[in-house]
């Protein structure tokens, strides 16, 4: 648009004037202005996201004092240690089971909220989203207190039913259960909101058609709702898988990796090794193991974006 309005001016000017205006024209050109507007973003991403990501790769090849190149030495060291494989197993168990439960609970709750008359939906949605709103570090403190072995609410309540005090964060099995429970509590509302938005976008006629064809509620969900929501479910699950895999706050505050390092995730162990024991290269190597899941997600999302681009 701008280029068109500039045309008459350009025709009228002499060569000398054109050269003088050369810089101004370049600055006034649409693409230059656009580039300058996006420049802070490019610098920020380049310097503080892309560069550190590659710097992590470089760090991972150094020895502890960062004076010598050791190639894959850090990784070889990690692969030989039992605790590393424990962290791998726990990270996978944590991320996969938490995401499955978040997705299931989110899906079920979204259906219940969707069933309620439209006027009351706002109120329920508002209440159910509270876990997502509270900063996770703060709400995890509340969970830590709920799990407290001697004075806490859970064991008191269970005691009323005659169930003995459970050492929620002291036993390996229960500790694993607790971190997953808190993560599900925190993340399920996000799924609920996404699914609710998706449910509302399914045309009512499809359900009417299904009802006329005699579909029961299960068939309606399986043949109408799920196919219509497939995209949102995929994107939300993928996104949540990344965030859960990289989770730090909950495990750090609740168990700090304990009992005996059985609940460490990549993030908390990388923090323990890299910052607390100041072995930065080893910490960087540990955190790099979060990269594969990211790469898989990136491939799927890029495919999705290009597909949408083709449709448009």
């Amino acid at each position: 648009m701008v280029d068109v309005t500039l045309q008459p001016n350009r025709v009228g000017t002499t060569h000398a004037a054109r050269r003088r205006n050369g810089l101004r024209n370049a600055l006034g050109r649409k693409s230059t202005v656009a580039f300058l507007m996006a420049l802070p973003l490019i610098i920020l991403i380049g310097v503080l996201v892309v560069y550190p990501a590659f710097y992590a790769l470089h760090l991972a090849t150094l020895n502890k004092s960062m004076s010598k190149f050791v190639g894959f030495g850090n990784f070889e060291f990690l692969f030989k240690r039992e605790i590393f494989w424990m962290v791998v197993r726990q990270s996978c168990l944590f991320a996969i089971s938490a995401v499955i439960f978040k997705a299931l609970i989110g899906f079920i709750v979204a259906h219940f909220v969707h069933n309620v008359p439209a006027k009351k939906q706002r109120k329920w949605r508002g209440m159910l989203l509270v876990p997502w709103v509270i900063p996770p570090a703060m709400s995890t403190l509340a969970w830590l207190w709920l799990f407290d072995p001697s004075y806490s609410a859970f064991n008191y309540t269970l005691g009323l039913f005659g169930i003995g005090p459970i050492s929620w964060l002291g036993e390996i099995g229960w500790a694993r259960f607790s971190v997953i429970l808190v993560n599900v509590w925190y993340g399920a509302p996000f799924f609920m909101i996404m699914y609710l938005a998706a449910l509302k976008s399914v045309p009512e006629q499809l359900y009417e058609a299904a009802a006329i064809d005699g579909a029961n509620w299960w068939q309606r969900i399986w043949y109408v709702t799920l196919p219509m929501m497939r995209n949102i479910i995929a994107i939300t699950t993928l996104f949540s898988l990344i965030v859960t895999f990289a989770n730090f706050d909950i495990t750090r505050i609740l168990t700090n990796g304990g009992p005996l390092d059985h609940t460490h995730l990549f993030a908390t162990w990388a923090f323990r090794v890299g910052i607390e024991s100041s072995d930065i290269p080893l910490g960087a190597s540990v955190s790099l193991f979060m990269f594969p899941i990211l790469a898989i997600a990136a491939v799927f999302i890029l495919r999705d974006i290009s597909k949408r681009g083709n449709e448009a």
Binding site: V49, P52, A56, A246, G283, A298
Partner: peptide, 15 residues
């Protein structure tokens, strides 16, 4: 894609 890169991957190199 940058939005998907978690903070837990970047904190050590940034530090």
């Amino acid at each position: 894609l940058t939005y998907l890169i978690p903070d837990t991957l970047l904190f050590i190199p940034l530090f």
